[in-house]
Write a protein that binds this DNA or RNA. Structure first.
Lengths: 73, 73
DNA sequence: TAATATTTATCGTTTTTCGATAATTTTTTA
DNA sequence: TAAAAAATTATCGAAAAACGATAAATATTA
């Protein structure tokens, strides 16, 4: 799946742990971990909003589309 | 909800209609319309991927977090 | 105004989030 | 290096939501 989730960089910038971010986003650490590590297949905008709010960033900072090389158009 | 979906700009850039984009993304025009007009509450990464692929853009080009003014942090 | 495109709505099915929880693994710290 | 803490992974069930199919309404275009 060439949608890449990268929350780690912003977390490092904000110096916030997964546990703390989970608490502020109001989601369990287990579920945030799943999302953070690219195991989720979708995301609710309410969750995305909370993450962006707490990390003070844009969706584009944590979600990337990386076309695979076979997909040249 | 301060997550703003803006697919129109990229569609205009690529000169593609909603119907055509829907077909290429393999989703019904009705559902793409819902997504495009901010009526959806979530998105599957598979759908986001297909949209980015067909519009040749990044998630950040079509999804924006706009904090509301009461939300000053 | 007629044709076409888009939006809105409803229903049912399927998918997926997410909580709760526990176990496992990794990382940090003393 | 051993213990503690944090993060990851897994499972189950409930709730939410995507999405298809379809039709109707509205808007746009020719």
């Amino acid at each position: 799946m060439p949608i890449i989730i990268n929350i780690d960089v912003m977390m490092a910038k904000r110096k916030i742990s997964l546990g703390d971010l989970a608490e502020r986003v109001d989601i369990t650490p287990a579920n945030l971990s799943i999302l953070k590590n690219g195991k989720a297949r979708a995301i609710r905008f309410s969750t995305l909003e909370a993450i962006c709010r707490e990390l003070d960033c844009q969706p584009g900072d944590i979600i990337e589309y990386r076309p695979d090389d076979t997909d040249n158009r």
